[in-house]
Computed example of a mutant assay.
Amino acid sequence: MPDRASGSLVEKTWRMILEGDPAARRGQPAVLEAAYAEPRLRALFPFPSHGALNFHRNTQFPWSNDLPFIVGDAQSCIVYAPLGTPQRVLGQSLTPQEAAALVVAHLPPDCGPAFDGPWPPPDSPTD
């Protein structure tokens, strides 16, 4: 894990979660560490909640909620596609590392680093 005194909100959030900061959300350590080891996931906003590790393209509510996520622990993980996707389970009985790699494999091509702010992106067209 990087040893930085400052950085983006995404970097600070990852650091707080991985270091067990009392103000940070809690998640499964093995899953968090495997996700953090993947550069594309490390650039997204981590949101552990209710046994799942969600990834968002943005840092404030409302969340993007359009990316795959991991449910599980050090023993076994399931990767789910975002809500509204026909095939919900992308993989099961995976190690945390396999699960993180599967999430990366299913990220949209335009999924870059998370931006600060609510979803949708500020430059997205409005209806």
Results as ranks from 00 to 15, higher is better:
residue 1 M to L: 08
residue 2 P to Y: 00
residue 5 A to T: 11
residue 6 S to V: 13
residue 6 S to R: 05
residue 6 S to A: 15
residue 10 V to Y: 01
residue 11 E to T: 10
residue 11 E to N: 02
residue 11 E to I: 03
residue 14 W to Q: 03
residue 14 W to D: 02
residue 14 W to T: 02
residue 15 R to A: 09
residue 16 M to L: 08
residue 16 M to K: 14
residue 16 M to R: 15
residue 17 I to S: 07
residue 17 I to W: 01
residue 18 L to T: 00
residue 21 D to F: 01
residue 25 R to V: 08
residue 26 R to P: 00
residue 28 Q to R: 10
residue 28 Q to E: 15
residue 29 P to K: 02
residue 29 P to C: 03
residue 29 P to D: 12
residue 32 L to E: 02
residue 37 A to I: 00
residue 38 E to F: 03
residue 39 P to C: 04
residue 39 P to R: 11
residue 39 P to T: 05
residue 40 R to F: 01
residue 40 R to T: 14
residue 41 L to H: 04
residue 41 L to P: 04
residue 42 R to D: 00
residue 42 R to Q: 02
residue 44 L to N: 09
residue 45 F to P: 00
residue 46 P to A: 07
residue 47 F to D: 12
residue 48 P to S: 07
residue 49 S to H: 08
residue 49 S to G: 00
residue 50 H to P: 00
residue 50 H to A: 13
residue 50 H to V: 13
residue 51 G to L: 10
residue 52 A to L: 07
residue 52 A to N: 11
residue 55 F to S: 03
residue 55 F to A: 04
residue 56 H to I: 01
residue 57 R to A: 11
residue 57 R to G: 14
residue 58 N to Q: 08
residue 61 F to D: 12
residue 63 W to C: 06
residue 64 S to A: 11
residue 65 N to Q: 11
residue 65 N to S: 13
residue 65 N to F: 09
residue 66 D to K: 06
residue 67 L to R: 12
residue 67 L to Y: 11
residue 67 L to K: 12
residue 68 P to I: 10
residue 68 P to W: 10
residue 69 F to H: 15
residue 69 F to D: 01
residue 70 I to L: 07
residue 70 I to S: 04
residue 71 V to F: 10
residue 72 G to P: 05
residue 72 G to R: 07
residue 73 D to F: 01
residue 74 A to E: 15
residue 74 A to F: 00
residue 74 A to H: 12
residue 75 Q to T: 14
residue 75 Q to N: 14
residue 76 S to H: 03
residue 77 C to F: 10
residue 79 V to R: 05
residue 80 Y to S: 12
residue 82 P to T: 08
residue 85 T to D: 11
residue 85 T to H: 15
residue 85 T to S: 15
residue 86 P to I: 02
residue 86 P to S: 10
residue 87 Q to L: 03
residue 88 R to P: 14
residue 91 G to N: 06
residue 91 G to R: 04
residue 95 T to M: 04
residue 95 T to N: 06
residue 95 T to A: 05
residue 95 T to P: 06
residue 96 P to M: 03
residue 97 Q to D: 14
residue 98 E to G: 14
residue 99 A to Q: 11
residue 99 A to M: 12
residue 99 A to S: 09
residue 100 A to L: 08
residue 100 A to P: 10
residue 101 A to T: 11
residue 101 A to M: 05
residue 104 V to E: 04
residue 105 A to R: 14
residue 105 A to I: 07
residue 106 H to K: 13
residue 108 P to L: 14
residue 109 P to C: 01
residue 110 D to K: 11
residue 110 D to C: 02
residue 111 C to G: 09
residue 111 C to P: 06
residue 111 C to K: 06
residue 113 P to K: 13
residue 114 A to F: 08
residue 114 A to H: 07
residue 115 F to E: 11
residue 116 D to G: 04
residue 117 G to C: 10
residue 117 G to M: 09
residue 117 G to Y: 09
residue 117 G to V: 11
residue 117 G to N: 05
residue 118 P to K: 10
residue 119 W to V: 00
residue 119 W to N: 14
residue 119 W to M: 05
residue 120 P to Y: 09
residue 121 P to H: 14
residue 122 P to G: 15
residue 123 D to T: 14
residue 124 S to Q: 13
residue 124 S to R: 15
residue 126 T to W: 07
